[in-house]
Amino acid sequence: MNWAEIGTYAAAVFLLVGALFTLVGAIGLLRFNDAMTRLHAPTKVGTVGIGALLLASMTASFVFGEGSFHELLIMAFLFVTAPISANFMSKVNIHRKTCVPPPVPPHGETWSTLVKDEIDQVPTGTQS
């Protein structure tokens, strides 16, 4: 058993793990019945699945051709942006009231999505 064979096995395992996690993310997107619980599976399990596929691509490039490591960049980008997308989508859920309303924070504060700011309070006389 030489290094190329071990690398091929490793790439195959990464491919299978990535395929499984991506599928689980999509199943979770489809089967939960609340808008907030639906957010959990695809934003994280799916992201890790794609991360595993990128890892497989990196391993395969080192085994079959000249190595490349710039898939790391896509992986890092996905891992940095996934929390921001999830945060925006849960803000949309809270704003449109399509989920169980969150509890009110203590000491008279409010959640910043629910704060009424000047954008919402356009004076009626200005629209002629």
Binding site: T43, K44, A86, S90, I94, W111, S112
Partner: peptide
């Protein structure tokens, strides 16, 4: 958010 099972939704 990245550790699954929890999503941070909003800040006060």
């Amino acid at each position: 958010t990245l550790t699954p099972g929890t999503v941070s939704a909003d800040v006060s």
